[in-house]
Design a protein around this nucleic acid. Sequence first.
DNA 1: AAGTCTTGGTGGTTAGACCACACTGGATTT
DNA 2: AAATCCAGTGTGGTCTAACCACCAAGACTT
Lengths: 256, 256
Amino acid sequence: MTLIPRHLPTRSSLRRHAHDTVEGHSAEGSTEQVVTHVRTQIESGALKRGDRLPAERDLASLIGVSRPTVRAGLRALSAMGVVRSRHGSGTFIPAGPPTLGSEPLSFLAALHGFTREEMYEARRLLEVGAAGLAAARATPDQLATIAEEVASLFASMNDPQKFLLHDISFHRAVAAASGNPIVVALVEMLSELYYGRRRETASQATEQNLRDSSEMHRRIYQAIRSGDVGGASAAMNEHLQKSSAYQAEEPSAATT
Amino acid sequence: MTLIPRHLPTRSSLRRHAHDTVEGHSAEGSTEQVVTHVRTQIESGALKRGDRLPAERDLASLIGVSRPTVRAGLRALSAMGVVRSRHGSGTFIPAGPPTLGSEPLSFLAALHGFTREEMYEARRLLEVGAAGLAAARATPDQLATIAEEVASLFASMNDPQKFLLHDISFHRAVAAASGNPIVVALVEMLSELYYGRRRETASQATEQNLRDSSEMHRRIYQAIRSGDVGGASAAMNEHLQKSSAYQAEEPSAATT
DNA sequence: AAGTCTTGGTGGTTAGACCACACTGGATTT
DNA sequence: AAATCCAGTGTGGTCTAACCACCAAGACTT
């Protein structure tokens, strides 16, 4: 038996042990405690959209962990979009519409080699349904937003990059008109992923492509406006399938 | 004028300045450098699924930041599911199928008060299409997996919790049969969100509910097996709409 | 009264140290 | 000789202490 024990209990380890005993959560890391704390505060209504979290130093003493640990938890929450830190001002819960962020999906795409066809297909499943819901529920304001984007599409047929931006905006507007915030978040996530990829090759689109695309967008809008659920779904379906087919024939299609 | 300048340029600030000059990335925080570094390594193929990242200390000296900063970046990547750290072993890129994780969506649900109907609707849009794809593409193995889950559903009609687990597994299996990894990831994300909520109220389901549900699952399977795209979609649509309606009539429905 | 400057509080980063865990390979034991 | 044990080494996890950069609001000056 050695005379000098290798692992003396330190202040921190004792504190940790006390926590385990009190909370009963088996093996919850200190960092997880921070995330759990914030989640609890949110679920209990103590933290709402737009609220500011306590300062990191205060959170540290409040939860009973060190500041770096608090920072680790907040960094994780920040990566999930739950929280957003502003240097010098504090850490806030974003107030805007629910958004998921496309970064995780973007990493997944790079790691698993998602193809353009798979991306279009996923968008198709989701947006065909979204267009149908929009046809049934769109408010006049939402219809106006969609109509504006259609107009912008026709107006930017000479600028593929600008066209792409309005293309995305159109699909977002349709999703918003579905009235379902989850659908909005999902469509936005996929749209951003698509935009990040398409941006590099958008200039390959011919003006004829853009003209046809504008026309298809217009048909989608008209179906939504007239409350034609089946027609809106069918038009969206046709649009996304044809767009995918167009891009498959572009020169750079082989690089995938 | 004070004799002692308050802000002397330090080594770190000088180094930071050099970075800005060299890279040209305006105002990219040190932590972002870590994320960007990993992303670059992934996109260049230097890091693949299952690979192990360099040790944090090595990454720190490699990128030119401190270890806590490296840890912050890795923590963010970990929250996005890009990376997973195992105490004592190292930091790895998960090797399994592409997954998004439902935690961000769960936070969003708590913050924005997503309703059960909205969750069911989002699932419906996605899974109706997924069922159609499955009918067109399912391999014999995938069909077998779906059939097994149907059998398990019938076998666990007396245990609502068990039934719920097989219910989720069934829908995951259908999504997997769609052959589209993005769809799989999205369906899984929504399914986990649904499971986390339904778990608490699953016991309220009557045996008649579970019997009907099993029967609907069976019909979905049969449509997929016979390659009936429209039938599979319609069956899935009916199933999710009826399930949503069932739950709306349960006693605890008012708590939402 | 308007502009400017100081001041306090906040997140961002660094440094060094130590602990807890996992794997590996040699020493010990059987 | 084989099985077992155990210490070493490397890894992520946490802590302490300190400083920097930024922001907003109050105090000061003009």
